[in-house]
């Protein structure tokens, strides 16, 4: 029992992934600044932001449902830490996980997005409602290709739905990104993750130009700090999931730890570059992109995986 609580609250869960995710968010902002020939924020910037938000006043909107509004960031934090535990334990090779944890991860990864929607709708703000409806459509569009890519992974790994066994298979037979279906699947999943994280081509739920931060518009102080923390965690665990599924996990023994750090930084670098070289698309374009092109890619990847390519 004590071990599980430690897992959840400290080591791969809440604290660890929040701190590392905060570092990654600094990395992302700094890279963005360098791409735009700026200097960028200092290293401790995510910490300053977080502490400042905790110290600010928390305002509760007049209309809408205060209890739901206050509870939704708590549930988001809960879901994100749970996903961190399920993903990072097998990825780092600490614990074998259990059979079928891949399916649990699919569900748990959706909790933060769903709680954003619930929190936004509970705030009673019309612009937040617009943001929530966009986020909902976005979930509907990226979830199918995401699942299809996982199907191709499962086929390639010899019909196993255990994350630790997928890692083992890759250690024995070479990383999946080395094969043709792996490359196509990788492209698809990077796009899905871009949308899951709400980064620029797919950040229409938070369009700060048109709908004033959309789903986050009413959150202030502690609530916003918790949402920020969830975003930090997601910025670590989604790249970690990609590394686990396609690049044979994040081994922490000996010199391999360097490779693991480089893998995570590489995936974040890719996400940041996509975010900096693309404009925001409309929700209709995003849906078409995922429903037609990404599904096509994912199905091609499945077919290739069946033929063992």
């Amino acid at each position: 029992m004590a071990k599980e609580i430690f897992y959840f609250l400290i080591f791969p869960g809440l604290l660890f992934s929040g701190v590392i995710g905060g570092f990654l968010s600094w990395f992302d902002r700094k890279l963005t600044a360098r791409v735009q020939f700026r200097q960028g924020p200092p290293l401790l910037q995510p910490l300053y932001d977080f502490v400042k938000l905790l110290a600010k006043e928390t305002m509760i909107p007049k209309y809408g449902s205060p209890t739901t509004f206050l509870l939704s960031p708590v549930f988001a934090l809960f879901g994100a830490s749970l996903a961190a535990v399920f993903i990072l334990l097998p990825a780092l090779g600490i614990d074998g996980g259990f059979n079928g944890d891949l399916l649990v991860i699919i569900y748990v990864l959706n909790i933060p997005s769903v709680t954003y929607i619930i929190g936004a709708l509970a705030s009673g703000n019309p612009l937040a409602a617009v943001g929530a409806s966009r986020e909902m459509k976005l979930i509907l569009s990226y979830e199918l290709p995401f699942l299809l890519v996982l199907v191709s992974i499962i086929i390639k790994a010899g019909m196993t739905i255990n994350l630790a066994e997928i890692v083992e298979y890759q250690v024995l037979h070479g990383a999946f990104i080395g094969s043709l279906s792996g490359i196509i699947g990788f492209i698809t999943i990077i796009m899905c993750i871009q949308a899951k994280l709400g980064l620029v081509p797919f950040d229409m739920a938070e369009g700060e130009g048109e709908i004033c931060d959309g789903i986050m518009i009413e959150s202030s102080g502690t609530i916003l700090a918790m949402y920020k923390f969830v975003k930090y965690i997601m910025l670590l665990i989604l790249p970690a999931l990609v590394c686990t599924l396609f690049m044979s996990g994040l081994s922490v023994s000996g010199i391999n730890i360097l490779w693991s750090v480089l893998k995570i930084l590489g995936v974040v670098l890719l996400l940041t570059l996509i975010r900096n070289t693309n404009p925001r698309v409309r929700i209709k374009q995003a849906m078409r992109f995922f429903w037609i092109w990404m599904n096509l890619f994912a199905i091609i990847s499945i077919v290739l995986a069946v033929f063992g390519l």
Binding site: R29, A33, Q36, F37, R38, Q39, G40, P41, P42, Q45, Y48, D49, K52, K56, M59, E208, G209, C212, D213, M216, I217, E218, S219, S220, L224
Partner: peptide
């Protein structure tokens, strides 16, 4: 803009007044 770049002091423009300092 890159010439002044207030983000190096941690300042940024936000879209909603609820986030403002």
């Amino acid at each position: 803009t890159p010439r002044y770049d207030i983000e190096r002091f941690g300042m940024k423009l936000v879209g909603s007044v609820r986030h403002a300092d």
